[in-house]
Nucleic acid binder design. Structure first.
Lengths: 343, 343
DNA sequence: CAACGGGCTGATAGCGCTGTCAATAATTGT
DNA sequence: ACAATTATTGACAGCGCTATCAGCCCGTTG
């Protein structure tokens, strides 16, 4: 009935405590709240731990304390730079802290998201970051029952589950399209791919701005559910100029599409911005380098990740932020591709 | 001395077993090896679990079984598309399996890598994926003591720790530069950023190819330790043409640099490929769209991720692959930017 | 008909750590 | 000087699950 012997050389808290001449529970405290120990014991435990190369067993800790020190992060895609940037903020901000990040990929599927949430639920994470505001009622149910702080990221909206960090995609798109309208462009196309919830809201912003100026025309709208890529931007632009040769500007749902559109213009010898203005969304680094440089909407993706972790850790440490909603805003970065129309 | 009551509604294996009318251990077996149960009990446990919405407590499982079902993945950067692609393969291949992926970011630091490995060590992962072959001796020590299958990814080299999936960066660079030489280019520059170990080896391939053709000249080499970005590609190209105006081609350490270089050429009215050929590395999607389309080296990053997980799970299930080295190769994708030189 | 083997199930005893409370030592106030 | 605090420390009992071995039932074998 004996279990196999503990592996030779395996170091448990007990060993550390023994070497330090204290009880295991005291050693345990050293790792969680060193200030609770007297200086002498603290030093003894510290050197014992170092000498033995002790590494805590997280599974045991999680089981005994009934909570893990894991922050779960749900994003829809790994390919998309936008989420990678946000993630970078998440990892940077959690660096060195006691919480570790556990990433999961929903692939833009609500069902997948629900499934992953249930798994996280079983892990009793210390906190949770989820993308967007379109969780199913079931997902929201699971999240509420998780009993940990939660931050929704990438966009803001009504009725946050707990906390939320982002900006209004429809406002941003509205502003970008208004910029084109102000510059004198009238027949402004919309190139959309993927059309996830945030893409939809960018379309809403486009449509509202166009309608407000009585310029909206369904003929100018090209969308697809395919994932957005640079080559796809070229395809969409081709479709648009074929269908509406009189187009004088395009608002692209993101920068990849915008870059593809620019390349297609170069290929077709369409002068940008003289014949066609191009505006993208997200302001990826290449937008400033392109020739002509491309106007875009700067969004603070890295900051969203950082801020989400900050709010989360604050809440986990017992002082939830005053503002449960953080609007990180956006900025229209005007470049050559939307220079004033010469009319 | 009583602990707080189990949360209302919390479902443990015991509850499932009770409802199913079996012992806890039988219920436990259902989740790990359903075939060991009789059909009747299997069905009873299954329906009980579903009815109660049971989710296993992974911490308890890991503690009791002395191993977690976690695959640790160490990558140097989240920003770099190359790793994101590999990761996508990892996540796709582990989807639906019993292992979950735990990601950690070394930020190109060997010390950071060592620290993260120690943390993983404490978690007793079922498997490990690490980037590259340049681990410190200490890191290798820790890995060996982890007693789990390990795959190194992104490049191949001598003396793998356990298994390895990748390709030879120096061979790939050698082939790319040889391609330029064959096409008649002679004064071929090298634009390098970040210069991580794989970047170094690409430089080695460039240097060897140039030397083999007696064309090597230190004047043609521009490198920086800064992270590579599209704008940086423009800066490096500017430096190069300033220092060596007679240059007739550039081999770029990656596609971002290549794209930046192309834009800089457009800005400076340098005709590509007539005056200057450009070759990149990785074949990101935009390379085919650019005008002119850009020659690059296709690497199978997604496949590397998939393959790594396949090898790992095979090894974890007790049948390690015959070949512990998987060379996924590369392919020179010739496009307009390296068209034959008209001489 | 006893002995045997295989398939299935259950009892027991932890895995390594921490929550809880009690006990003890050190410090302070009056 | 003595009680009242406060700071440290320790004993105990699990957290929820699984490794291990024992036992049962049944059909087979010699």
């Amino acid at each position: 009935m004996e279990r196999k012997q503990p592996q030779f050389g395996k170091v448990r808290l007990t060993e550390v405590a023994q070497l330090a001449g204290v009880s295991p529970i005291t050693a345990s405290r050293f790792f969680r709240n060193p200030n609770a120990l007297s200086v002498s014991k603290r030093e003894r435990v510290e050197s014992a731990a170092r000498e033995l190369g002790y590494v805590p067993n997280l599974a045991a800790r999680a089981l005994a304390s009934q909570r893990s020190e894991v922050i779960g992060v749900l994003i829809p895609s790994l390919t998309n730079n936008v989420f990678a940037d946000m993630l970078r903020g998440v990892y940077d901000a959690s660096e060195g802290g006691r919480y570790s990040v556990q990433l999961a990929n929903t692939r833009y599927s609500n069902l997948q998201e629900e499934r992953l949430l249930r798994i996280f639920h079983g892990q009793k994470p210390a906190g949770l970051i989820v993308t967007g505001i379109n969780q199913t009622p079931e997902s929201r149910q699971v999240m509420r029952s998780m009993n940990c702080p939660i931050v929704q990221v990438m966009e803001i909206g009504p009725d946050p589950i707990d906390m939320i960090v982002g900006f209004s995609h429809s406002d941003a798109a509205f502003a970008a399209v208004s910029h084109l309208i102000e510059r004198g462009y009238k027949r402004i196309g919309f190139l959309g791919a993927r059309m996830d919830p945030r893409g939809q809201r960018r379309f809403d912003g486009y449509r509202d701005a166009m309608k407000a100026a009585s310029l909206f025309n369904q003929r100018f709208v090209i969308t697809t559910l395919s994932p957005s890529t640079v080559p796809l931007g070229g395809v969409l632009l081709s479709d648009l100029v074929t269908r509406a040769p009189d187009i004088d500007a395009v608002f692209c749902i993101n920068d990849d599409i915008a870059l593809g559109a620019l390349f297609e213009c170069q290929r077709r010898q369409i002068a940008v911005p003289e014949q066609l203005a191009i505006v993208g969304f997200n302001d990826l680094e290449f937008m400033a380098s392109a020739v002509p440089s491309l106007t875009s909407v700067r969004t603070n993706r890295y900051e969203m990740g950082r801020k989400a972790i900050e709010m989360l850790t604050a809440a986990m440490d017992g002082n939830p932020p005053q503002d449960r909603v953080a609007d990180l805003g956006f900025e229209i970065v005007v470049r050559e591709s939307s220079a004033r129309r010469r009319t």
